[in-house]
């Protein structure tokens, strides 16, 4: 119950909750009517965007005490994995879309 109480009384948490609700509708709205040709690049682009989790990895890495080797190692790994998700995701998407634009010009 405390948790629920906090959710609505703490302005910061409440703000986050509002963002969540609005983002859900925005996500649905934004996709709207997408041609099936673009399903794969869109999925790949969305895949890169959730790589935003890297920010969490950076924060956890940056806050790790310098003698806590477990946190350092795992944090380091998390930063690598997160970067892979972001960079790989955007590059793969670009490669897919590059082909679409090339054929358009012809």
């Amino acid at each position: 119950m405390d948790f629920l109480q906090n959710l609505f009384s703490d302005p910061a948490t409440y703000r986050l909750l509002t963002i969540v609700i609005l983002s859900i509708f925005l996500g649905i709205e934004v996709i709207g009517r997408v041609p099936s040709v673009l399903h794969t690049p869109l999925m790949s682009g969305a895949n890169a965007i959730h790589g935003v989790v890297i920010i969490g990895a950076i924060i956890v890495m940056g806050q790790a005490p310098s003698d806590d080797y477990l946190a350092l190692t795992l944090g380091f790994l998390a930063v690598i994995l997160g970067t892979l998700n972001v960079v790989g995701g955007f590059v793969v998407t670009d490669r897919m879309l590059e082909m679409f634009s090339k054929k358009k010009k012809k």
Partner: peptide, 12 residues
């Protein structure tokens, strides 16, 4: 992180 994550969650 919240907007990015939730956007992908719902759009996905």
């Amino acid at each position: 992180m919240l907007t990015g994550g939730i956007l992908v969650g719902s759009a996905g």
